[in-house]
C-alpha cells in the first residue's frame, strides 16, 4: 500500500517553477531518499505535501486520502523533523518533547512513556534538564528529531536532519532512523549528502530544478553511470604526452590529471585496474599509491546534470 502519492505537482513563484510536474510514491515500510542539490525543490515539495504551501497543480494523497490543511486524521500519523531546528528556547529538553508530543497524545501516562522513549531513542538521557542553548549542534539536532517522532508516527518526514552535525551524532541519527523504520514507520528522507542516502535509503529519487531526474535503488542508479570504476593513482612521473596516450586507450572512459593525482574512469570492465597498472609499468612510471572506487550518486548526478550534488 502506498503511504504517499504525489502526482504532477507544480509550485510556482511567479515565472519560476520550484516544483515542476513532480511525481513521487512511497510504499509502506520504505525509507525513500529524496536527493538533490540546494535549491532543487526538496523542501518546497515537503511543505506542499504537508499542506503548508499552496500549489498550482497536482494532487497529494496520504494514506489513500487527499491531504488538506484540516485533515486532522491524517496529521495524527505524521511526524516532521524540519530543516531548521524547531524547539522552544525557553523549555528544556524534556519539556520540549512533552509539549510537542502533547499535540498528538492526550493521555498523560502514555505521553510520559512516549517522551521517555524518545529521549532514550536519541540518547539525550543526560541532558533532559538542559535548555536548547546549552546543547551542542549535534545534540540540538537530536532534540529536533525527538520532538518530531515522540508520538510514534506512521509516516515521518526528515528534511535534511544532519546539517552542521558532527559525525558521531550523524551516525547516531542515521542508525536511529533505521530503527524507526524497523519498528514500522515509513520515512521520507531528504538530503544533499549522498553518503547518508546511500547508507539508509531503500529507494532513492534524485531531484533537480523541481523535476525528478532519476529514481531507483542505489545499485540501479549507479548502473546508470557510463563508467565502471574510478582508479585514483598518486604519481609524480606522468608526463603530459603519456597522459594524452592514456586517454586514448580503449578501456579508459575519461581521465583527469591534477599533478600528482591521476583519476582514470574505466569502461564497464573488470580488468581496468590491471590494464592501467600494465600501462604504468610498461613506461616505468612509478606511483606512490592507488585505489579504485565504484561510481557514487554524485557521479551519477554529475553525468546527468553536469553539476555537483553538493556546493
Amino acid at each position: 500500500m502506498s503511504v504517499l502519492e504525489i502526482k504532477d505537482l507544480v509550485k510556482r513563484y511567479g515565472d519560476f517553477s520550484a516544483v515542476d510536474h513532480f511525481n513521487l510514491t512511497i510504499q509502506e515500510g520504505e525509507i525513500l531518499g529524496l536527493l538533490g542539490p540546494n535549491g532543487s525543490g526538496k523542501t518546497t515539495t515537503i511543505n506542499c505535501l504537508l499542506s503548508l504551501l499552496t500549489y498550482e497543480f497536482g494532487s497529494i494523497h496520504l494514506f489513500g486520502k487527499p491531504m488538506k490543511p484540516d485533515a486532522y486524521d491524517l496529521k495524527q500519523h505524521i511526524g516532521i523533523v524540519p530543516q531548521n531546528v524547531a524547539v522552544f528556547e525557553e523549555l528544556n529538553v524534556n519539556e520540549n518533547i512533552d509539549y510537542f508530543c502533547g499535540l498528538y497524545v492526550k493521555d498523560k501516562a502514555t505521553r510520559k512513556a512516549y517522551v521517555q522513549d524518545a529521549i532514550a531513542f536519541v540518547g539525550l538521557e543526560e541532558f533532559t534538564t538542559f535548555l536548547p542553548k546549552q546543547l551542542s549542534g549535534g545534540l540540538l539536532r537530536r532534540l529536533n528529531i525527538a520532538c518530531g517522532i515522540a508520538h510514534k508516527p506512521k509516516f515521518i518526514v526528515f528534511d535534511e536532519p544532519t546539517v552542521a552535525v558532527d559525525p558521531q551524532s550523524r551516525n547516531r541519527i542515521l542508525e536511529g532512523i533505521k530503527d524507526l523504520n524497523r519498528s514500522g514507520s515509513t520515512i521520507l528522507y531528504t538530503s544533499h549528502y549522498m553518503e547518508e542516502v546511500e547508507q539508509i535509503c531503500s529507494r532513492i529519487v534524485i531531484m533537480d530544478n523541481g523535476k525528478q531526474i532519476a529514481e531507483g535503488t542505489k545499485e540501479s542508479l549507479k548502473a546508470l553511470s557510463q563508467f565502471g570504476e574510478v582508479i585514483k593513482v598518486e604519481t609524480h612521473d606522468l608526463s603530459d604526452e603519456q597522459f594524452l596516450e592514456l586517454q586514448a586507450l580503449p578501456f579508459v572512459f575519461k581521465a583527469e590529471w591534477n599533478r600528482p593525482f591521476l583519476s582514470v574512469y574505466t569502461q564497464n570492465e573488470k580488468q581496468g585496474l590491471l590494464q592501467l597498472m600494465q600501462f604504468l609499468s610498461d613506461r616505468s612510471i612509478d606511483y606512490v599509491s592507488f585505489r579504485n572506487e565504484v561510481p557514487t550518486l554524485n557521479d551519477v548526478f554529475l553525468e546527468i546534470t553536469g553539476k555537483q550534488l553538493r556546493d
Partner: peptide
C-alpha cells in the same frame, strides 16, 4: 511548522 502540521485544532 510543527504546530500547523499537528492534529490539534
Amino acid at each position: 511548522i510543527r504546530l500547523n502540521v499537528s492534529p490539534t485544532h
